[in-house]
Amino acid sequence: MAKKVRIAFLSFAHMHANGYAGELRALPKGSVEIAGIWDRDAARAKKMAKLLGTKAYAKREQLLARKPDGAIVCSENVLHKEDVLAAAEAGCGVLCEKPLAPTVADCRAMIDGCAKAGVPLMTAFPCRFLGTLMRLKERVDGGELGQVLAVSATNHGRQPGGWFADPKRSGGGAVMDHTVHVADLLRWLLKQEFTRVYAAAGFNRFALTRKAVGKRAVDDAGLLSLEMSGGTVAALDCSWSRPAEYPTWGDVKLELIGAQAVARLDAFRQRALLASKRTGKQVELFWGDQAQGGLGGAFVKVLAEGLAPPITGEDGLRATEVVEAAYRSIRDGSPVVLAG
Protein backbone atom coordinates (compact mmCIF):
# COMPACT_ATOMS: atom_id res chain seq x y z
CA MET A 1 0.00 0.00 0.00
CA ALA A 2 1.27 3.44 -0.95
CA LYS A 3 2.20 5.64 1.98
CA LYS A 4 -0.27 8.16 3.25
CA VAL A 5 0.21 11.54 1.58
CA ARG A 6 0.14 14.50 3.98
CA ILE A 7 -1.06 17.79 2.59
CA ALA A 8 -0.93 21.26 4.11
CA PHE A 9 -3.31 24.04 3.16
CA LEU A 10 -1.73 27.45 2.80
CA SER A 11 -4.67 29.83 3.02
CA PHE A 12 -8.37 29.49 2.31
CA ALA A 13 -8.61 32.95 0.77
CA HIS A 14 -9.78 31.41 -2.51
CA MET A 15 -13.02 29.49 -2.08
CA HIS A 16 -11.76 26.72 -4.37
CA ALA A 17 -9.76 25.49 -1.34
CA ASN A 18 -13.02 24.14 0.07
CA GLY A 19 -13.52 22.13 -3.09
CA TYR A 20 -10.01 20.68 -3.00
CA ALA A 21 -10.42 19.78 0.68
CA GLY A 22 -13.65 18.01 -0.19
CA GLU A 23 -11.90 16.10 -2.95
CA LEU A 24 -9.16 14.97 -0.57
CA ARG A 25 -11.69 13.78 1.98
CA ALA A 26 -13.46 11.76 -0.70
CA LEU A 27 -10.30 9.80 -1.54
CA PRO A 28 -9.89 6.26 -0.15
CA LYS A 29 -9.34 6.21 3.60
CA GLY A 30 -5.70 6.09 4.54
CA SER A 31 -4.41 7.51 1.25
CA VAL A 32 -4.33 11.15 2.27
CA GLU A 33 -4.34 13.30 5.38
CA ILE A 34 -4.75 17.04 5.78
CA ALA A 35 -1.62 17.92 7.73
CA GLY A 36 -2.86 21.30 8.86
CA ILE A 37 -4.04 24.71 7.81
CA TRP A 38 -2.27 28.01 7.89
CA ASP A 39 -3.95 31.21 6.86
CA ARG A 40 -3.04 34.89 7.19
CA ASP A 41 -6.58 35.15 8.53
CA ALA A 42 -6.16 33.23 11.80
CA ALA A 43 -9.89 33.05 12.47
CA ARG A 44 -10.49 31.49 9.04
CA ALA A 45 -7.71 28.97 9.68
CA LYS A 46 -9.32 27.97 12.97
CA LYS A 47 -12.78 27.71 11.44
CA MET A 48 -11.62 25.59 8.52
CA ALA A 49 -9.42 23.39 10.73
CA LYS A 50 -12.40 22.64 12.94
CA LEU A 51 -14.56 21.88 9.93
CA LEU A 52 -11.96 19.58 8.39
CA GLY A 53 -10.83 17.96 11.64
CA THR A 54 -7.25 19.18 11.43
CA LYS A 55 -4.98 21.67 13.20
CA ALA A 56 -4.68 25.38 12.54
CA TYR A 57 -1.21 26.93 12.60
CA ALA A 58 -0.45 30.54 13.42
CA LYS A 59 2.73 30.61 11.33
CA ARG A 60 3.33 29.19 7.89
CA GLU A 61 6.76 27.95 8.90
CA GLN A 62 5.34 25.99 11.84
CA LEU A 63 3.08 24.07 9.50
CA LEU A 64 5.80 23.55 6.88
CA ALA A 65 8.14 22.32 9.64
CA ARG A 66 5.75 19.40 10.05
CA LYS A 67 7.20 18.21 6.73
CA PRO A 68 4.02 17.70 4.73
CA ASP A 69 4.45 16.01 1.32
CA GLY A 70 2.49 18.65 -0.46
CA ALA A 71 0.97 22.09 -0.04
CA ILE A 72 -2.16 23.52 -1.62
CA VAL A 73 -1.81 27.27 -2.01
CA CYS A 74 -5.11 29.19 -2.17
CA SER A 75 -4.00 32.59 -0.97
CA GLU A 76 -4.74 35.91 -2.71
CA ASN A 77 -3.20 35.97 -6.20
CA VAL A 78 -0.36 38.36 -5.39
CA LEU A 79 0.72 36.16 -2.45
CA HIS A 80 0.95 32.92 -4.46
CA LYS A 81 4.63 33.44 -5.20
CA GLU A 82 5.65 33.91 -1.59
CA ASP A 83 3.63 30.92 -0.38
CA VAL A 84 4.68 28.62 -3.23
CA LEU A 85 8.37 29.42 -2.78
CA ALA A 86 8.12 28.88 1.00
CA ALA A 87 6.50 25.49 0.45
CA ALA A 88 9.08 24.52 -2.19
CA GLU A 89 11.94 25.47 0.09
CA ALA A 90 10.40 23.21 2.76
CA GLY A 91 10.48 20.36 0.22
CA CYS A 92 6.72 20.27 -0.45
CA GLY A 93 5.21 19.57 -3.81
CA VAL A 94 2.82 22.42 -4.63
CA LEU A 95 -0.65 22.75 -6.07
CA CYS A 96 -1.25 26.46 -6.66
CA GLU A 97 -4.64 28.02 -7.32
CA LYS A 98 -5.06 29.78 -10.65
CA PRO A 99 -3.86 32.22 -11.85
CA LEU A 100 -0.43 30.86 -10.97
CA ALA A 101 0.57 34.50 -10.41
CA PRO A 102 -0.58 37.85 -11.81
CA THR A 103 2.66 38.38 -13.75
CA VAL A 104 4.73 36.18 -16.03
CA ALA A 105 7.86 37.16 -14.11
CA ASP A 106 6.38 35.82 -10.86
CA CYS A 107 5.28 32.62 -12.59
CA ARG A 108 8.81 32.15 -13.90
CA ALA A 109 10.30 32.68 -10.44
CA MET A 110 7.89 30.09 -8.98
CA ILE A 111 8.69 27.54 -11.68
CA ASP A 112 12.41 28.08 -11.19
CA GLY A 113 12.11 27.94 -7.39
CA CYS A 114 10.24 24.63 -7.48
CA ALA A 115 12.67 23.18 -10.04
CA LYS A 116 15.61 24.20 -7.86
CA ALA A 117 14.01 22.61 -4.81
CA GLY A 118 13.24 19.50 -6.85
CA VAL A 119 9.50 19.58 -6.05
CA PRO A 120 6.60 19.31 -8.49
CA LEU A 121 4.54 22.44 -9.21
CA MET A 122 0.99 21.95 -10.41
CA THR A 123 -1.40 24.74 -11.47
CA ALA A 124 -5.02 24.40 -10.47
CA PHE A 125 -7.12 24.49 -13.61
CA PRO A 126 -10.06 22.42 -12.34
CA CYS A 127 -12.09 22.75 -15.57
CA ARG A 128 -9.85 20.14 -17.18
CA PHE A 129 -11.36 17.61 -14.78
CA LEU A 130 -15.01 18.29 -15.58
CA GLY A 131 -16.73 15.37 -17.25
CA THR A 132 -18.06 17.57 -20.04
CA LEU A 133 -14.61 18.95 -20.85
CA MET A 134 -12.96 15.54 -20.78
CA ARG A 135 -15.56 14.28 -23.24
CA LEU A 136 -15.01 17.28 -25.52
CA LYS A 137 -11.26 16.66 -25.38
CA GLU A 138 -11.82 13.04 -26.45
CA ARG A 139 -13.84 14.12 -29.44
CA VAL A 140 -11.45 16.89 -30.47
CA ASP A 141 -8.52 14.47 -30.18
CA GLY A 142 -10.49 12.00 -32.29
CA GLY A 143 -10.31 14.52 -35.10
CA GLU A 144 -14.00 14.75 -35.92
CA LEU A 145 -14.00 18.57 -35.91
CA GLY A 146 -11.31 18.82 -38.56
CA GLN A 147 -9.25 21.97 -38.46
CA VAL A 148 -10.66 24.19 -35.70
CA LEU A 149 -11.12 27.58 -37.32
CA ALA A 150 -12.61 29.57 -34.47
CA VAL A 151 -13.71 29.30 -30.86
CA SER A 152 -16.26 31.52 -29.21
CA ALA A 153 -15.98 31.16 -25.45
CA THR A 154 -17.41 32.63 -22.28
CA ASN A 155 -16.38 32.35 -18.68
CA HIS A 156 -18.93 34.57 -17.04
CA GLY A 157 -19.20 35.08 -13.34
CA ARG A 158 -20.76 37.10 -10.61
CA GLN A 159 -18.63 39.77 -8.97
CA PRO A 160 -16.95 37.72 -6.22
CA GLY A 161 -16.24 40.75 -4.01
CA GLY A 162 -13.66 40.72 -1.21
CA TRP A 163 -10.03 40.62 -2.29
CA PHE A 164 -11.01 39.69 -5.85
CA ALA A 165 -12.26 43.25 -6.26
CA ASP A 166 -9.00 44.71 -4.95
CA PRO A 167 -6.33 44.70 -7.66
CA LYS A 168 -3.65 45.22 -5.02
CA ARG A 169 -4.38 41.70 -3.83
CA SER A 170 -5.83 40.07 -6.94
CA GLY A 171 -3.61 41.67 -9.58
CA GLY A 172 -6.72 42.64 -11.58
CA GLY A 173 -10.44 42.14 -12.00
CA ALA A 174 -12.49 39.92 -14.29
CA VAL A 175 -9.74 39.73 -16.93
CA MET A 176 -7.34 38.38 -14.28
CA ASP A 177 -9.89 36.06 -12.71
CA HIS A 178 -11.64 34.60 -15.73
CA THR A 179 -9.17 34.60 -18.61
CA VAL A 180 -6.92 31.80 -17.46
CA HIS A 181 -9.49 28.98 -17.32
CA VAL A 182 -10.40 29.25 -20.97
CA ALA A 183 -6.87 30.16 -22.06
CA ASP A 184 -5.70 26.91 -20.48
CA LEU A 185 -8.58 24.89 -21.93
CA LEU A 186 -7.82 26.15 -25.43
CA ARG A 187 -4.12 25.26 -25.17
CA TRP A 188 -5.04 21.85 -23.76
CA LEU A 189 -7.74 21.09 -26.33
CA LEU A 190 -6.01 22.44 -29.41
CA LYS A 191 -2.31 21.95 -28.58
CA GLN A 192 -1.54 25.43 -29.82
CA GLU A 193 0.06 28.48 -28.21
CA PHE A 194 -1.27 32.03 -28.24
CA THR A 195 0.35 34.40 -30.72
CA ARG A 196 -1.74 37.57 -30.63
CA VAL A 197 -4.01 39.09 -28.00
CA TYR A 198 -6.45 41.97 -28.20
CA ALA A 199 -8.65 42.91 -25.28
CA ALA A 200 -11.21 45.54 -24.37
CA ALA A 201 -12.45 46.06 -20.85
CA GLY A 202 -15.07 47.93 -18.92
CA PHE A 203 -14.48 49.18 -15.38
CA ASN A 204 -17.09 49.26 -12.59
CA ARG A 205 -19.82 48.51 -15.09
CA PHE A 206 -21.97 46.37 -12.83
CA ALA A 207 -23.87 47.31 -9.69
CA LEU A 208 -22.28 44.49 -7.69
CA THR A 209 -18.82 45.81 -8.54
CA ARG A 210 -19.71 49.38 -7.65
CA LYS A 211 -20.88 48.12 -4.28
CA ALA A 212 -17.75 46.01 -3.75
CA VAL A 213 -14.96 48.34 -4.82
CA GLY A 214 -15.68 51.70 -3.23
CA LYS A 215 -13.51 54.27 -4.97
CA ARG A 216 -11.30 51.81 -6.81
CA ALA A 217 -11.70 51.11 -10.53
CA VAL A 218 -11.80 47.40 -11.30
CA ASP A 219 -12.28 45.76 -14.68
CA ASP A 220 -15.50 43.76 -14.48
CA ALA A 221 -16.25 43.49 -18.21
CA GLY A 222 -13.78 42.04 -20.65
CA LEU A 223 -13.69 40.75 -24.21
CA LEU A 224 -10.55 39.08 -25.56
CA SER A 225 -9.70 38.24 -29.17
CA LEU A 226 -6.99 35.63 -29.53
CA GLU A 227 -4.96 34.08 -32.31
CA MET A 228 -3.15 30.78 -31.91
CA SER A 229 -0.09 29.17 -33.46
CA GLY A 230 -2.12 26.61 -35.44
CA GLY A 231 -4.32 29.27 -37.02
CA THR A 232 -7.30 29.00 -34.67
CA VAL A 233 -8.84 32.32 -33.66
CA ALA A 234 -10.84 32.71 -30.47
CA ALA A 235 -12.93 35.17 -28.55
CA LEU A 236 -13.49 35.10 -24.81
CA ASP A 237 -15.96 37.01 -22.66
CA CYS A 238 -14.59 36.96 -19.10
CA SER A 239 -17.05 39.45 -17.61
CA TRP A 240 -18.39 39.37 -14.09
CA SER A 241 -21.73 40.19 -15.65
CA ARG A 242 -24.08 37.94 -13.66
CA PRO A 243 -26.39 39.98 -11.45
CA ALA A 244 -27.33 38.81 -7.97
CA GLU A 245 -30.77 37.91 -9.34
CA TYR A 246 -29.34 35.48 -11.92
CA PRO A 247 -30.04 31.83 -11.06
CA THR A 248 -26.41 30.71 -11.20
CA TRP A 249 -22.88 31.94 -10.58
CA GLY A 250 -21.80 32.03 -14.21
CA ASP A 251 -20.71 29.70 -16.95
CA VAL A 252 -17.97 28.04 -18.94
CA LYS A 253 -19.04 27.76 -22.57
CA LEU A 254 -17.02 26.90 -25.65
CA GLU A 255 -18.20 26.80 -29.24
CA LEU A 256 -15.58 25.17 -31.45
CA ILE A 257 -16.17 25.86 -35.12
CA GLY A 258 -14.29 23.24 -37.10
CA ALA A 259 -14.01 22.66 -40.82
CA GLN A 260 -15.87 19.34 -40.35
CA ALA A 261 -18.08 19.92 -37.35
CA VAL A 262 -19.19 22.44 -34.77
CA ALA A 263 -19.01 21.57 -31.07
CA ARG A 264 -20.99 23.65 -28.60
CA LEU A 265 -20.15 22.94 -24.98
CA ASP A 266 -21.91 24.31 -21.93
CA ALA A 267 -19.80 22.81 -19.16
CA PHE A 268 -22.42 23.25 -16.43
CA ARG A 269 -25.51 22.56 -18.53
CA GLN A 270 -26.29 19.40 -16.59
CA ARG A 271 -28.43 21.12 -14.01
CA ALA A 272 -31.80 21.23 -12.38
CA LEU A 273 -33.74 24.39 -11.68
CA LEU A 274 -35.00 24.89 -8.14
CA ALA A 275 -37.49 27.60 -7.18
CA SER A 276 -38.21 27.64 -3.48
CA LYS A 277 -39.06 29.86 -0.56
CA ARG A 278 -36.02 28.33 1.08
CA THR A 279 -33.62 29.62 -1.58
CA GLY A 280 -35.50 32.86 -2.14
CA LYS A 281 -34.98 32.81 -5.90
CA GLN A 282 -34.46 30.38 -8.74
CA VAL A 283 -31.30 28.35 -8.26
CA GLU A 284 -29.56 26.08 -10.73
CA LEU A 285 -28.22 22.85 -9.30
CA PHE A 286 -25.33 21.28 -11.19
CA TRP A 287 -25.47 17.48 -11.23
CA GLY A 288 -22.75 16.74 -13.77
CA ASP A 289 -19.58 15.01 -12.72
CA GLN A 290 -15.85 15.33 -12.80
CA ALA A 291 -12.86 13.02 -12.91
CA GLN A 292 -12.51 10.62 -9.99
CA GLY A 293 -10.94 12.59 -7.18
CA GLY A 294 -10.83 15.72 -9.31
CA LEU A 295 -7.92 18.08 -9.26
CA GLY A 296 -7.12 17.36 -5.60
CA GLY A 297 -7.01 13.63 -6.34
CA ALA A 298 -4.66 14.22 -9.27
CA PHE A 299 -2.33 16.20 -7.03
CA VAL A 300 -2.29 13.41 -4.44
CA LYS A 301 -1.42 10.96 -7.20
CA VAL A 302 1.49 13.17 -8.30
CA LEU A 303 2.86 13.13 -4.75
CA ALA A 304 2.20 9.47 -4.01
CA GLU A 305 3.59 8.08 -7.23
CA GLY A 306 6.24 10.68 -8.05
CA LEU A 307 4.52 11.54 -11.31
CA ALA A 308 4.93 14.71 -13.35
CA PRO A 309 1.95 17.02 -12.71
CA PRO A 310 -0.77 16.75 -15.38
CA ILE A 311 -0.99 20.56 -15.35
CA THR A 312 2.40 22.17 -14.92
CA GLY A 313 3.72 25.50 -13.75
CA GLU A 314 4.55 26.20 -17.38
CA ASP A 315 0.84 25.76 -18.19
CA GLY A 316 0.06 28.30 -15.50
CA LEU A 317 2.62 30.72 -16.93
CA ARG A 318 1.22 30.43 -20.45
CA ALA A 319 -2.24 31.35 -19.23
CA THR A 320 -0.89 34.31 -17.26
CA GLU A 321 0.95 35.39 -20.40
CA VAL A 322 -2.45 35.91 -22.06
CA VAL A 323 -3.69 37.91 -19.07
CA GLU A 324 -0.62 40.13 -19.07
CA ALA A 325 -0.94 40.73 -22.81
CA ALA A 326 -4.66 41.45 -22.38
CA TYR A 327 -4.02 44.17 -19.81
CA ARG A 328 -1.34 45.66 -22.05
CA SER A 329 -3.78 45.63 -24.94
CA ILE A 330 -6.47 47.28 -22.79
CA ARG A 331 -3.98 49.98 -21.83
CA ASP A 332 -2.67 50.58 -25.37
CA GLY A 333 -5.85 49.92 -27.31
CA SER A 334 -4.07 47.70 -29.83
CA PRO A 335 -3.28 43.99 -30.18
CA VAL A 336 -0.20 42.50 -28.52
CA VAL A 337 2.03 39.94 -30.24
CA LEU A 338 3.26 36.94 -28.24
CA ALA A 339 6.19 34.71 -29.12
CA GLY A 340 3.85 31.68 -29.40
Binding site: L149, A150, S152, Y198, A200, A201, G202, F203, R205, A221, G222, L223, S225, L226, E227, G231, V233, A234, A235, D237, I257, A259, P335
Partner: peptide, 28 residues
Amino acid sequence: YGVGHFIAPQLKDVALLTLTWSSGLLAH
Protein backbone atom coordinates in the same frame (compact mmCIF):
# COMPACT_ATOMS: atom_id res chain seq x y z
CA TYR B 1 -11.64 44.71 -33.89
CA GLY B 2 -12.05 41.20 -35.17
CA VAL B 3 -10.49 37.85 -35.89
CA GLY B 4 -11.74 35.38 -38.43
CA HIS B 5 -11.26 33.08 -41.39
CA PHE B 6 -12.55 33.25 -44.92
CA ILE B 7 -11.81 30.06 -46.83
CA ALA B 8 -13.77 30.14 -50.09
CA PRO B 9 -12.80 26.70 -51.46
CA GLN B 10 -14.14 25.06 -48.30
CA LEU B 11 -17.12 27.39 -48.04
CA LYS B 12 -16.08 28.40 -44.54
CA ASP B 13 -16.38 31.93 -43.23
CA VAL B 14 -16.40 32.95 -39.60
CA ALA B 15 -15.57 36.08 -37.65
CA LEU B 16 -15.50 37.11 -34.01
CA LEU B 17 -15.85 40.87 -33.56
CA THR B 18 -15.33 43.20 -30.62
CA LEU B 19 -16.85 46.67 -30.65
CA THR B 20 -16.31 49.38 -28.07
CA TRP B 21 -18.23 52.57 -27.33
CA SER B 22 -17.07 55.81 -25.73
CA SER B 23 -19.50 55.09 -22.89
CA GLY B 24 -17.48 52.00 -21.93
CA LEU B 25 -20.02 49.64 -23.48
CA LEU B 26 -18.55 46.54 -25.16
CA ALA B 27 -20.10 44.24 -27.73
CA HIS B 28 -19.16 40.88 -29.13
